[in-house]
C-alpha cells in the first residue's frame, strides 16, 4: 500500500511515495538520491546509515520511512552550509579520520550529535558515544582526534583558533 511521505530533509520539505516496509535509508538512497548515508548492514549494527532525526542520532536502516512523517532529517549532505564545510568535516579531512571513507558519513552524524549534546566531551565520552559506529579500516584514533580538535574550537565557524 503506497503512501505519500512528507518530511523535512536537510532543511527543505520533501514529498515522496513510499511503501510501508521501506526504511528511511531505502527512501533516501534509492528514491531521493541522497546516498551519503551508507548501507553497511541493514541490521542496526554498523552505524554507516546514521542520520539525525529531530536532532537525535538514529539508524536510518531501522527506521520505517513512514514514521518520520513531518519530522526533520539531517544527513551528511546537510552538514555543510552555503558551501562551507562543517567544522567536523574540516577536522575529519585534515586529520585523516578515514581510510576508505565508507563509515565517514555515519561517523560525522554521530559526532555532530555528540557535540550538540556535550560540546566538551572527554576522550572516554567520545569513545562511548561513538561506540555504535564501526570503522573496519581502524581510523578510530584519528576520529577521536578530529572530534577533540573541534571540541577545542580549532575549526570554529568564525575561523581559526580561538
Amino acid at each position: 500500500m503506497k503512501q505519500i511521505l512528507s518530511f523535512i530533509l536537510n532543511g527543505s520539505p520533501v514529498d515522496v511515495i513510499v511503501t510501508p516496509t521501506e526504511t528511511l535509508l531505502d527512501v533516501l538512497r534509492e528514491k531521493l538520491g541522497v546516498t551519503g548515508p551508507k548501507r553497511g548492514c541493514d541490521d542496526g549494527d554498523c552505524g554507516t546509515c546514521t542520520v539525525l532525526l529531530d536532532g537525535e542520532p538514529v539508524r536510518s536502516c531501522l527506521t520505517i520511512a513512514l514514521t518520520v512523517a513531518g519530522r526533520e532529517v539531517l544527513t551528511v549532505e546537510g552538514l555543510s552550509t552555503d558551501g562551507d564545510l562543517h567544522p567536523l568535516q574540516k577536522a575529519f579531512h585534515e586529520h585523516g579520520a578515514f581510510q576508505c571513507g565508507f563509515c565517514t558519513p555515519g561517523m560525522l552524524m554521530s559526532a555532530k550529535a555528540l557535540l550538540d549534546h556535550n560540546p566538551t566531551p572527554s576522550r572516554t565520552e567520545i569513545r562511548e558515544y561513538m561506540s555504535g559506529n564501526l570503522c573496519r579500516c581502524g581510523s578510530y584514533e584519528e576520529i577521536i582526534e578530529a572530534i577533540q580538535v573541534v571540541a577545542a574550537g580549532e575549526y570554529a565557524p568564525s575561523g581559526g583558533k580561538e
Binding site: 538520491g33 551519503g36 551508507k38 574540516k90 579531512h93 585523516g96 578515514f98 571513507g101 565517514t104
Partner: peptide
C-alpha cells in the same frame, strides 16, 4: 608533511560515489 587526502572533501561531504551509490 602529512597532507589531506586528494579525495577527502568528497568523502566528508558524502559525495564520493561507492558502487551501491549508483542508482
Amino acid at each position: 608533511k602529512a597532507m589531506p587526502r586528494y579525495d577527502g572533501i568528497g568523502q566528508v561531504k558524502g559525495q564520493t560515489k561507492f558502487v551501491d551509490d549508483f542508482v
